[in-house]
Structure formats: structure tokens, C-alpha cells
């Protein structure tokens, strides 16, 4: 096993170009488990902790550009007000020790369907910034996940950052786990309301080969909100519409039976989570001063 420790981003990209087999490691919360439990013996590992710009975030063209190495703890502390959905999801990641090390960049790199950051990123149309020695490219989050633990990265690329709009309205995140802390999602759901564009974003976790959106549910509820002039009236969404929204989210899922839960339960629970999240988010919108 080789160990690379680039000091700069440029150096990291050169190393990745020269050693495309090198597995990047940041917080180690995925990679180290694989190594410690002898599931994986990468030919090379590249430590990204030394690269200062990866741990920075900034405003960028109306969005937030958040370095791939920003930890969950910092996301909660520093960006919780602007990215409430992501912050809520971050709070459910592991434990304080894990949130102090784990990063959204790592979550994206692993691309597990159960990654907690994915649903809020999907719900907010985040963009993943990939870089290599041949340049930088932006991939829309809904095109980023290509299969179970697979993503759109090329072998020579590293995740530089993700870009996301600061919330313009309420966001919610909910997850089901069979323990009251430190649990991998049986399924999860995120919703984001954008009053400016009168749009609703969704994200589903742990209920398909990849994290998913629920476009039909989004369109349905957007239509309800527009048709009944609810954005302006700030009136309640009908129970039947909320239920339908939940059902459409459940229908968008492609769950399987596994050690954490059954497909049927996942669908059932997603419908509940989606209905509740939408209810909470909408009430937040209605009742906001």
C-alpha cells in the first residue's frame, strides 16, 4: 500500500492523475472501516487533510461553495442557518466523533444510497465540483449518483467542493433508524421549499440503488400550492394532498430488503416521512413572520 500526502490541491490532482488507483481519504469514516475490517486493501491512499482550500467554504455566484473537506460539525455550526436541511441531516450522522471528521465530500465519494447528506443535496439541486489536472467540471447532483456506491467521477478526478443555494425557505430532513442515535438510515427523506421560485425539492435516501428524487411528488405538490394559491394565502395544505405527496414519494423509491429493513417497510415509512416533512416545512413557511 502506498501513502500519498499532497500539501496542495494542485499536487493532489497531479498525484491522482499519476495514480488513478489511489483512494482519497479525508475523515476516514468510510475508508478506515474498510481497511480495519479487512474489506479492502487499496493499492494506494491519498490523504486530503493537508489541503487547506478543501476545508474552506465561500460565497460563489449566489451559491455557497463548500469545500469537500468541510466536516459535518462545521456545517452545522457555521452553515446551519443557511443550509438547515443539510444541517439537520448532518446532525444525524454518526456521533460527535464522526461528525468532527466526516465530510460531505466523503459522503459523495462513497456514494452510498444511505449517505445522510444526499437527500438534502438532491432536494436543493446541489452541484458537485469535480477536478482533475485537465480541469474542473460541475455535475448536477441528480446526475452524480450512477449506481450503488458508484458515481460520475472519473478515475483521475477528485471532489473539490459542492455548490448549493442558501435556503430561501424552510427545509426538513427525516430519517428512520432502529436506534435513537448513531444509526444508518433505513430510509430518509429531505424536502426543500423555495418560495422565490415556487418550487419544492425532494431527496430520498436508502431506498434505492442510489439516492433519488421524487419528481412526480415535487410536481404534484408544486401544482397544489400554485393552483390553490397557497404560497400567497399561506393556508394549510389539505391532508389529502399531503398524503398524496407522501404516496408519490414512496412510489419514487426503489427499495430492497436488506439487513436494515424490508422494501415494503421502506416504502411505507417514506410515505410517512415525506408527509410529515412537507407538513412541517409548510407550517414553517406559513407561520414565519
Amino acid at each position: 500500500m502506498e501513502f500519498f500526502q499532497p500539501a496542495t490541491w494542485a499536487e493532489a490532482l497531479q498525484m491522482k492523475a499519476a495514480h488513478p488507483e489511489a483512494v482519497p481519504i479525508a475523515g476516514g469514516t468510510d475508508v478506515m472501516v474498510e481497511i480495519n475490517l479487512d474489506h479492502q486493501r487499496p493499492a494506494a491512499i491519498m490523504d486530503l487533510n493537508r489541503i487547506r482550500e478543501l476545508a474552506e467554504w465561500e460565497r460563489y455566484d449566489g451559491m455557497l461553495r463548500i469545500g469537500a473537506g468541510v466536516t459535518y460539525t462545521r456545517l452545522i455550526d457555521e452553515l446551519g442557518d443557511r443550509l438547515p436541511g443539510l444541517a439537520m441531516a448532518s446532525r444525524t450522522v454518526g456521533s460527535p466523533q464522526i461528525r468532527n471528521r466526516g465530510t460531505v465530500g466523503g459522503n459523495l465519494g462513497t456514494a452510498s444510497p444511505a449517505g445522510d447528506a444526499h437527500p438534502p443535496l438532491l432536494a436543493t439541486d446541489a452541484i458537485v465540483e469535480l477536478a482533475s489536472t485537465s480541469g474542473t467540471r460541475h455535475v448536477a447532483i441528480h446526475e452524480f449518483f450512477t449506481g450503488p456506491k458508484r458515481n460520475a467521477m472519473r478515475k483521475d478526478e477528485l471532489i473539490a467542493a459542492f455548490l448549493v443555494h442558501p435556503a430561501t425557505g424552510p427545509q426538513q430532513f427525516s430519517k428512520v433508524g432502529t436506534r435513537n442515535a448513531m444509526v444508518i438510515a433505513v430510509c430518509s427523506f429531505a424536502v426543500s421549499l423555495d418560495p422565490t421560485h415556487r418550487s419544492v425539492g425532494t431527496g430520498i435516501g436508502s431506498a434505492g440503488p442510489t439516492p433519488l428524487r421524487a419528481p412526480r411528488a415535487e410536481h404534484f405538490i408544486e401544482d397544489v400550492l400554485l393552483d390553490e394559491n397557497l404560497w400567497n394565502r399561506k393556508a394549510e395544505v389539505s391532508a389529502s394532498a399531503l398524503k398524496r405527496f407522501g404516496d408519490l414519494v414512496a412510489r419514487a423509491a426503489k427499495p430492497i430488503d436488506d439487513v436494515r429493513g424490508t422494501a415494503a417497510y421502506r416504502r411505507h415509512a417514506l410515505a410517512v416521512l415525506a408527509r410529515r416533512c412537507m407538513t412541517w416545512a409548510w407550517n414553517d413557511y406559513r407561520l414565519a413572520a
Partner: peptide, 15 residues
Amino acid sequence: GTLVCACLVLGGQAN
């Protein structure tokens, strides 16, 4: 100064 699990830090990262 940050609370972490030592098992999840690769030895080289502690350099």
C-alpha cells in the same frame, strides 16, 4: 484539539 475516533484516522494522517 478535536474529538475523534483514533481508529478512523490513518496513521499517516497523524503525521
